[in-house]
Simulated assay, not measured.
Amino acid sequence: MTGTGWVLVVASVTVAANAGVFVAFSTFVMRALGDLPAADAVRAMQSVNRRAPTPAFMALLVGSTVLAVVGAVAALVSGGRVVPAVAGAVLAVVAFAVTGVVNVPLNDRLEAADPADGDRAWSAYAGPWTRANHARAALGLLAALLLAVAAVPA
């Protein structure tokens, strides 16, 4: 396998790992939080959001996106499978953008909320956050698939 192929494989795996985190939240974490009284759900998600930006998670979140772009550029330069590489990179960047444009601002608003006002805070948060998270998960999984396809020699 070429250097470009390896970059695309690593990009695919890391983008898929990142998407897996989002899938977990979409498929059971948010539902479990929603089963709690709203004030407890707010407190729990505030705690999750404080713990999430670890060096390891941030390296995965940012690094997977950077690797996807590097893989697409490498495919363009080497004449590899450009269409799936670029499409995968674009989808990875869009998933990352959704995080910054939708999920993080919602997290910041929830952090500022008083759990005593949990009903209002949780209802304003959970639906929009989860819908954006579904999008991040789907975009990431499709990006990972396209990057993997791009890694396979034509």
Rank of each mutant, 00 (worst) to 15 (best):
S47N: 13
V15W: 00
R43V: 11
A126L: 13
R131T: 14
A116F: 07
A112D: 14
T99K: 05
V48D: 09
T99I: 09
N107R: 02
T14E: 09
V42N: 02
L36S: 11
R81L: 12
G118E: 09
R131M: 10
A87S: 14
P115K: 03
V42Q: 03
N103P: 05
R51I: 10
L67N: 00
F22G: 05
D114H: 10
A85T: 08
T2P: 15
A41Y: 04
A154K: 11
V82M: 07
S26E: 11
T4Y: 00
G100M: 13
P53S: 06
A112V: 11
V77W: 10
A74W: 00
A11H: 01
V90M: 09
L36Y: 01
A89C: 08
V94I: 15
M1H: 12
S123C: 08
A41L: 09
A32E: 13
R109V: 07
V104R: 03
V152R: 13
N103G: 04
L139V: 11
A68Y: 01
T14W: 07
L110D: 00
V70I: 14
D40N: 13
P105K: 09
L106K: 06
V7D: 01
T130L: 13
S64Y: 01
L8K: 00
G71L: 03
A148V: 13
L145W: 07
A16E: 06
V10H: 00
V10M: 04
V23T: 15
Q46C: 10
N133V: 09
R131F: 10
A121K: 01
A112T: 11
A95Q: 12
A19D: 03
D119K: 05
A95D: 02
V7I: 15
P37N: 10
A154D: 14
D40G: 11
P105W: 07
V98L: 12
A87G: 09
N107L: 06
G88S: 09
F28I: 11
V42T: 06
G79I: 03
A97W: 08
V73R: 03
V93I: 14
A72K: 01
V62H: 11
A144R: 01
S78R: 12
